[in-house]
Design a protein around this nucleic acid. Structure first.
Length: 477
RNA sequence: CGGGAUGUAGCGUAGCUUGGUAUCGCGUCUGCUUUGGGAGCAGAAGGCCGCAGGUUCAAAUCCUGUCAUCCCGACCA
């Protein structure tokens, strides 16, 4: 069941939202299901997620994280234990009230996040300082009954990882939250070719139940920000609510400190909207499920397919993800198809190439073609993929940097965010000023960035009081 | 959850005002010829007209409800 590729996708500049939807469907990343907000992750889209999982599993394990799996459902009575947390999620929970044919007395919440399940478990298994720390993570899906949904960006169900860690001291827990934030930042640099702004969330934007929330924020091509991952320091609030305590070496009973952190399939949305162009998806080489698509030209002629297959095997042996498209579509059709799907490199092999002992390699990121001698294919593919990653990261970083603009008034801020990008503002830290900006401009405080807290003014750009923080505002998804 | 739009074959659509059993293009299948930027010819298959009620001799068409998708707001990864 192929969809029709002949119709051009909507141009980004004409209708960015429509372009996004077109790419999601025509690149075969997902399909809609019959229930609002629940999407089908098709093989090509899921394979991108698997690359992200592989990277993070490796990084998580290097800091001592263990994978676990918690139940899908949470009894409502358990969920209600931490007050702020409940209030944060209550409006968007899906609840099961019937089991078999009988009514369930304590209704079961389909997890919107699993804090309370981890806490309940931790309360049982932690009693001594010897039981700490615990660094658990789970890969699962969660359900939040969303009003507006968009593929990958906001779904009623989405896939994610949620890490829930617990430590003896505040310092360790906060270090964990910050350390994983750095891992997420590396994920952007190493895998996704996406530069993030990372920093501390304002109190208003903080996660329900957390003491501190940190986030990585990506800037989409249309100038809107997308929160792409969060980490939280919880303090001892959950531990107190759930009765988690440990006896220290000093024989005193204490509550441990917790952190949690997660990224979701929303990252796929980030990849699409940061790198994509009017020809479709552009995948960063390290997440691309297919890194090289080999297109045989006049494939019925002697030796062409044999050569293509030989090259495929050589590249696979060298560690690349590669396919040969032997279907009987025309070469032009295949070019367009793999461009739509964002495959980083296309390798053409035809009679002329065979004769001269060479191939043609075209890069998705800029369309440039190179002629490569047969004997150098493995090496050149490695170089071209590395260059493509660098090029994509550099382009995204240039775009990000040129869209962070310091402002000294709400009027200036509005101009910046209306045009697209981050307005960088000095802020007194009050909720009133934050709310006022949102009311007047539709922009929200994305974060107070790490590494960009150099004060460039004395006064809050909203109220004129003494400025405490540098904060970035943007319109967000 | 408010405002607007739309659901007809895998995709895009005509038909709806004025009820009579669904049009066209692409895709799919078969065969031959093709192949360096979305191939050509010939033949074929494919439809609970989103779903559920109602009106009627008769409903894609009229009425009611419902579900989903898209866009714009309010709320959130």
């Amino acid at each position: 069941m192929e969809t029709n590729k002949n119709e051009a996708i909507t141009s980004r500049d004409i209708d960015f939202a429509q372009w996004y939807t077109d790419v999601c469907r025509k690149a075969e990343l997902m399909d809609y299901s019959s229930v609002k907000g629940f999407i089908i992750y098709r093989p090509y889209g899921y394979a991108i997620w698997e690359q992200i999982q592989n990277y993070l599993n490796q990084r998580f394990k290097s800091i001592g994280v263990q994978n676990v799996y918690m139940p899908l459902v949470i009894p409502e009575s358990l969920f209600n234990k931490e007050k702020e947390h409940v209030e944060g999620f209550a409006p968007e929970t899906l609840i099961a009230t019937i089991g078999g044919k009988s009514k369930i007395d304590d209704p079961l919440i389909i997890r919107p996040t699993s804090e309370v399940l981890f806490c309940e478990h931790y309360a049982k298994i932690i009693s001594s300082h010897r039981d700490l720390p615990k660094l658990y993570n789970q890969w699962c899906s969660v359900v939040r009954w969303e009003k507006t949904t968009r593929p990958f960006l906001r779904g009623s169900e989405f896939l994610w990882q949620e890490g829930h860690t617990i430590f003896a001291t505040e310092e360790e827990a906060r270090d964990n939250a910050l350390g994983v934030l750095d891992i997420y930042d590396d994920l952007g640099k190493d895998l996704l070719a996406i530069p993030f702004v990372k920093g501390l969330k304002t109190d208003k934007e903080r996660f329900a139940g957390a003491r501190e929330t940190y986030s990585i924020e990506a800037l989409m091509h249309d100038g809107k920000a997308l929160q792409s991952g969060t980490t939280h320091y919880f303090g001892t609030g959950f531990a107190e609510a759930f009765g988690i305590a440990f006896q220290g070496k000093d024989n005193i009973l204490r509550h441990p400190h917790q952190a949690s952190w997660g990224v979701s399939t929303r990252l796929i949305g980030s990849i699409i909207m940061v790198h994509g162009d009017d020809n479709g998806l552009v995948l960063p080489p390290h997440v691309a499920p297919i890194q090289i698509a080999i297109i045989p030209i006049q494939q019925n002629k002697d030796g062409i397919l044999t050569k293509a297959e030989d090259i495929r095997q050589r590249l696979e042996k060298a560690g690349f993800r590669v396919i040969v498209d032997q279907s009987d579509r025309t070469p032009g059709w295949k070019y367009a198809e793999y461009e739509m799907k964002g495959v980083p490199l296309r390798l053409e092999i035809g009679p002329r190439d065979l004769e001269k002992g060479q191939v043609v390699i075209a890069r998705r990121v800029d369309g440039k073609k190179e002629i490569v001698p047969d004997g150098e294919i493995e090496r050149e593919v490695g170089r071209l993929l590395a260059e493509a990653h660098e090029e994509m990261y550099r382009k995204a970083q240039d775009f990000l940097k040129s869209h962070i603009v310091p402002v000294n008034s709400v009027a200036e801020l509005k101009r910046v965010v209306d045009q697209g990008g981050y307005a960088k503002m000095m802020w007194c830290g009050s909720r009133e000023c934050e709310d006022k900006v949102k009311d007047l401009t539709m922009a929200t405080a994305r974060c107070m960035p790490q590494g960009d807290q150099h004060h460039f003014g004395e006064k809050c750009a909203v109220c004129g009081a003494k400025a405490e923080k540098v904060v970035y505002f943007a319109k967000a998804y």
